Amino acid sequence: MTVLNTYLNFPGTAEEAFNFYKSIFGGEFAMLSRYKDGPKMDGCGDVPPELGEKILHVSLPIGANMLMASDAVPPLCPPVTTGSNVSLSLHPDSEAEARRLFEALSAGGTVQMPFQPMFWGALFGMCADKFGILWMVNFDLPKA
């Protein structure tokens, strides 16, 4: 079964926003990582020191769902535009289904990041479908 989660991008306020959401929904962050702790990204150069503490990824369980986010701050990412700062994040339970979903959703749209292995042990890709809706597809690879 594929799980659908919401992914938000913030202009540098993800930590403040997620502390606010945590105060409302309760629980603990399932993950919180900062740009300074992540790997060097192809074509992005070093993370400027003033952006090192910004959020690379945060996730907060809410019931059976996960609310996730990052700080999308230039020069690391394109600037946040309200209205296009929300992505739907799919988490299929098989690699074949993940590839099928990514190919189908990106057909006629725009691939923003090819579906490929990532440093967190998953296959991941991002696209905008032909209607402009932003999608992320993440398949966690089996642990060896």
Rank of each mutant, 00 (worst) to 15 (best):
Val111Thr: 14
Ser33Pro: 00
Leu51Asn: 10
Asp42Met: 11
Pro114Ala: 13
Pro117Gly: 04
Glu97Asn: 10
Phe20Ser: 12
Tyr21His: 10
Leu101Thr: 01
Gly27Trp: 11
Ala144His: 13
Glu95Arg: 11
Gly132Ala: 14
Pro75Trp: 11
Val58Thr: 12
Pro117Asn: 05
Gln116Gly: 08
Gly45Arg: 08
Met31Arg: 13
Pro75Thr: 07
Asn5Met: 06
Val47Leu: 05
Pro39Trp: 01
Ser59Lys: 06
Val111Lys: 01
Tyr21Glu: 10
Glu15Thr: 00
Phe124Asn: 01
Tyr7Phe: 15
Glu16Lys: 13
Gly121Asn: 07
Pro114Lys: 03
Thr81Trp: 02
Phe20Ala: 14
Cys77Val: 05
Phe10Ala: 03
Gln112Ser: 11
Pro78Val: 04
Ser23Ala: 15
Pro39His: 04
Gln112Arg: 13
His57Arg: 02
Gly38Lys: 01
Ala69Asp: 06
Val111Met: 03
Leu51Thr: 10
Asn85Ile: 02
Leu76Glu: 07
Met31Gly: 05
Phe139Gln: 06
Gly45Ala: 06
Asn5Val: 06
Gln116Trp: 00
Val58Ala: 13
Ser106Gly: 10
Val137Ile: 14
Gly38Gln: 15
Ala122Leu: 01
Phe124Glu: 00
Gly26Ala: 12
Leu32Asp: 05
Gly26Ile: 09
Phe131Met: 12
Pro39Cys: 00
Glu53Thr: 12
His57Val: 02
Pro11Phe: 07
Leu134Glu: 10
Leu56Ala: 14
Gly109Lys: 09
Pro49Cys: 06
Gly121Met: 01
Gly38Arg: 06
Leu60Gly: 07
Ser89Val: 00
Asn5Thr: 10
Met126Pro: 04
Ser106Asn: 09
Leu8Tyr: 14
Ser70Asn: 15
Cys44Arg: 14
Leu134His: 14
Thr110Gly: 00
Asp42Tyr: 00
Val80Arg: 02
Asn9Lys: 12
Asn19Glu: 15
Gly12Arg: 03
Val111Gly: 05
Asp42Val: 08
Asp71Ala: 09
Leu105Arg: 11
Ser70Cys: 15
Pro11Leu: 03
Gln112Asp: 14
Glu95Leu: 15
Phe10Val: 08
Val80His: 04
Phe139Ser: 02
His91Thr: 12
Ala107Trp: 00
Asp42Glu: 14
Gly125Tyr: 08
Ala107Phe: 09
Ala128Asn: 13
Val86Glu: 09
Phe18Gly: 11
Asp71Trp: 03
Pro61Glu: 08
Asp42Asn: 05
Gly43His: 06
Leu134Gln: 15
Tyr35Glu: 03
Pro74Glu: 14
Glu95Gln: 13
Thr81Asn: 11
Phe18Leu: 09
Glu53Asp: 15
Val73Tyr: 00
Pro142Val: 04
Gln112Val: 08
Gly12Glu: 03
Lys54Cys: 12
Trp135Asn: 05
Ser84Asp: 09
Ser70Val: 03
Lys130Thr: 07
Arg99Tyr: 00
Asn19Tyr: 10
Asp46Thr: 07
Leu90Ser: 05
Ile133Phe: 12
Ala72Cys: 10
Ala96Cys: 02
Pro78His: 11
Val58Phe: 05
Phe124Thr: 01
Pro114Tyr: 04
Leu51Asp: 06
Gln116Thr: 12
Met136Cys: 07
Pro48Phe: 08
Glu95His: 03
Thr2Leu: 05
Val3Pro: 00
Thr6Met: 10
Met66His: 02
Gly109Ser: 07
